[in-house]
């Protein structure tokens, strides 16, 4: 009995220490979605292609425009953007079939992997941003 109580206490402590910031399960789901829907152009390493497709890795645009990401992924992008001092004008296609939950996982993966962010965005926040 004492062993079980000790095990439970350690488990609870470990869970608390991990904190609510990054949900690795969601990030892993986001990675799968990234590989299917984004990596063709932005590449697996997020470095993009020459001056045709902008990089995601270390992109100042992502850090400065966090709130735009859900809409940008769902509806695509037509206008020029400036990323790390280079102007890109290639159209980004829309991803209308992704659900809100998938979009949330994808945004969290992109921010975690390429912008080194450890702050999660919630599904509710993504919904709000999509309706803005």
């Amino acid at each position: 009995m004492r062993v079980i109580i000790t095990f439970l206490m350690i488990s609870i402590l470990a869970a608390c220490m991990e904190g609510p910031s990054v949900n690795m399960q969601q990030v892993a789901h986001g990675q799968q979605l990234y590989e299917t829907h984004c990596a063709n152009c932005h590449q697996l390493d997020g470095k993009g292609i020459a001056h045709i497709v902008p990089p995601l890795l270390g992109a100042d645009y992502i850090v400065q425009n966090r709130n735009l990401l859900p809409k940008m992924i769902r509806y695509g992008m037509q206008q020029r953007i400036l990323v790390n001092g280079i102007t890109y004008q290639q159209k980004m296609p829309s991803n209308g079939k992704l659900t809100d939950a998938e979009l949330t996982a994808l945004v969290n993966f992109v921010e975690f992997r390429f912008a080194k962010s450890t702050q999660l965005i919630s599904a509710d926040s993504v919904k709000l941003l999509l309706n803005q």
Binding site: C41, Q43, I49, A50, P93
Partner: peptide, 16 residues
């Protein structure tokens, strides 16, 4: 074609 969203980006990366 330049606006191709599927295989062209990869083809261009390989052609580079």
């Amino acid at each position: 074609f330049t606006s191709c969203p599927t295989i062209c980006p990869v083809m261009k990366k390989e052609m580079i």
